[in-house]
């Protein structure tokens, strides 16, 4: 499409976003404010992730877009097509073949390698948001490493539910410094945050970008007597039989029928192919 600049955004905007990304990489876990643009999609549909992807894409890149692990859901399909049309980049559904992966709420099962970039869509970047409503105050708390409040939330979980019931957007501490919201990925994915690829987080409505360089130490917060536990449905995938992947529960009829299948469609399809 010749009517648009490469990857939709103009070069000055991409430059501004790249500056924010570089700053974010330099200070892992720190939320860098940026001048988020209006995108041709509603807030909440990944405007932050799309802007970050647009800023890091080059014509040689291969893009993969997933939504809750799946390549074929509305959000994933429309964002993938958006970049196909505005950037003309190659697209793939194979995790291993992609150089840039934009994701909503999952990390692929296949371990990412050096040289890959994974871009997260973030609705609310501030982990302290629902505990402390004032942005001025939360910024001060980050600056002063005043994170007692974060454990109050976990305390409340245990006192009410008998266990840490937070199942997604589970708070992590980055390199012993910043407390970060890893976007609403299930806590099953938290251990994977310690990875070889570059991780970028974009929040469009909230106008924040943050990042994790490769091999950054990411620790999930917990109590000594209630250690962090990544959880998943206690089943095997009904399609590929995997017992180690994160599962979606599907209701198949109105008589209580249900099945559990991998949420990562590429991982599941690859396993089925290999078995055949």
């Amino acid at each position: 499409m010749k009517e648009y600049n490469f990857a939709y955004l103009d070069e000055q905007t991409k430059r501004m976003i790249r500056r924010a990304i570089l700053k974010g990489l330099a200070i892992p876990g720190y939320q860098v404010p940026f001048a988020s643009r209006e995108m041709p999609m509603p807030y909440g549909w990944g405007t932050g992730g799309v802007q970050v992807s647009a800023a890091v894409l080059t014509p040689d890149d291969t893009l993969k877009v997933i939504d809750q692990g799946a390549d074929d859901t509305t959000n994933a399909v429309s964002i993938r097509r958006f970049f196909q049309r505005t950037a003309g980049v190659a697209v793939t559904e194979k995790t291993g073949e992609a150089s840039v992966i934009q994701t909503r709420h999952r990390i692929p099962e296949q371990a990412l390698r050096e040289g890959q970039i994974i871009v997260y869509q973030v609705p609310i970047p501030e982990p302290l948001r629902f505990l402390e409503p004032s942005e001025v105050e939360t910024r001060k708390m980050h600056a002063l490493e005043d994170y007692g409040l974060m454990h109050v939330k976990l305390y409340e979980d245990i006192s009410q539910h008998g266990d840490i019931a937070t199942a997604y957007a589970y708070p992590v501490k980055v390199e012993g410094r910043y407390v970060m919201d890893p976007s609403p990925i299930p806590k099953f994915d938290n251990p994977k945050l310690d990875m070889a690829a570059i991780q970028l987080f974009g929040a469009g409505r909230e106008q924040r970008i943050y990042a994790l360089p490769p091999y950054t130490k990411v620790v999930s917060l917990d109590f000594d007597d209630y250690p962090f536990q990544p959880t998943k449905a206690d089943h095997a995938c009904a399609l590929c039989g995997s017992t180690s992947s994160y599962l979606d529960e599907l209701i198949t009829d109105d008589a209580g029928g249900r099945m559990f299948i991998c949420s990562d469609t590429d991982y599941c399809a690859t396993r089925v192919e290999d078995a055949a």
Binding site: D146, G148, L149, H151, V152, Y155, I158, D222, F223, D224, D225, Y226
Partner: peptide, 11 residues
């Protein structure tokens, strides 16, 4: 809260 603010980490 104050205990957790001074790094009490045992529920």
């Amino acid at each position: 809260e104050r205990l957790m603010a001074v790094n009490a980490r045992h529920y």
